[in-house]
């Protein structure tokens, strides 16, 4: 009686063990499948357009008669918007995380933390809308230019979207710094500011770098917001006040109308593959630093 009961339990346990194992592998298979599909379709593209033109040209004009496929303006645009968003979000994020982890009274923290996490829940299309009606006109007025649909607008919006990621992971990293570091610093006579910025933040640096990388990954992959707020001009931008067209926006705009199995269709897979590789590398760097942090402070 008891034996059969145990056996039944063991059977159920094994069943669930395998079930969970399968779900794990399904995720990996999905990632592999997506990567394979991107590469497979990109190969068809590079059969027709030489990689040299793709990586060195200066125009993305698939609709023109000769069909110019160069990823350069798109990569520069994507990079510019992401860089701008990090310039805004990184200092804000780190300072906010330091405040949350070390300075804020418990009651403030209890309100602030969920509020920051709520920021991540705002749909990107709503943020893009704010970019059109609020941030864009604001930028136009501030800089005395005619129109605010430019890289700076995208950067401001993406900074808002990347902040929750950066703050949450930074705060975890700062909290993981052993208390003894702080106590030692204070005992040696350093004041709070010195302790924070000469001891705690450097000790948490790997985690902070991980946070920035993951925030950057988020900014690079964001589509709707930049599509709505950056003007989508395909020329190579010369600064933050120029309109830009990111890789993601290009795919979103052109996917709807592109005829299947044409060079243009494969080209969109090729730029998607490039974006995938960029974000993968950035996420890997982020993961590397996140793991290093764990090893030091375990």
């Amino acid at each position: 009686m008891r034996d059969s009961n145990i056996r039944r339990r063991e059977r159920i346990d094994t069943f669930f063990k395998y079930l969970f194992e399968v779900t794990g592998y399904v995720t990996i298979a999905l990632l592999g499948g997506i990567f394979f599909m991107l590469v497979y379709n990109s190969v068809s593209f590079f059969a027709e357009i030489s990689p040299v033109d793709f990586f060195t040209g200066n125009q993305w004009e698939p609709e023109s008669s000769e069909g110019k496929y160069s990823i350069v303006p798109l990569v520069i645009s994507t990079g510019l918007v992401a860089l701008g968003s990090m310039i805004i979000a990184v200092p804000l994020g780190i300072l906010c995380a330091v405040y949350l982890a070390e300075l804020a009274p418990t009651r403030v923290r209890n309100i602030l933390k969920p509020a920051i996490e709520m920021l991540a829940a705002i749909p990107s299309v709503a943020i893009g809308f704010l970019g059109i009606v609020l941030v864009g006109p604001g930028i136009a007025k501030l800089f005395g230019i005619q129109n605010g649909l430019n890289a700076l607008n995208g950067s401001v919006l993406l900074a808002v979207m990347a902040l929750p990621t950066i703050i949450t992971i930074c705060e975890d990293a700062i909290n993981a710094v052993p208390k003894t570091y702080k106590e030692a610093s204070l005992a040696l006579g350093a004041d709070t500011w010195k302790t924070l910025f000469k001891v705690i933040v450097p000790a948490a640096a790997p985690g902070i770098i991980a946070a920035v990388m993951l925030g950057l990954g988020r900014a690079l992959g964001e589509t709707m917001t930049v599509l709505m707020a950056t003007g989508n001009a395909s020329a190579i931008p010369c600064g933050f006040l120029d309109s830009v067209r990111t890789i993601t926006a290009t795919i979103a705009i052109e996917m709807g109308e592109v005829p299947y199995k044409t060079t243009h269709y494969f080209a969109l897979f090729a730029i998607a593959a490039v974006l995938f590789i960029i974000t993968l590398v950035i996420n890997l760097i982020g993961e590397y630093f996140a793991n290093r942090r764990r090893r030091f402070h375990a």
Binding site: Q59, E61, S64, S65, Q146, N147, N232
Partner: peptide, 24 residues
């Protein structure tokens, strides 16, 4: 071929809104 500097707006309404505030 359109100038690569041409902005690509999402629709007619967005174009009109932009022209209203942009003398150029």
């Amino acid at each position: 071929e359109f100038s690569p500097h041409a902005k690509q707006m999402n629709g007619n309404a967005q174009i009109l809104e932009a022209i209203k505030v942009d003398p150029s």
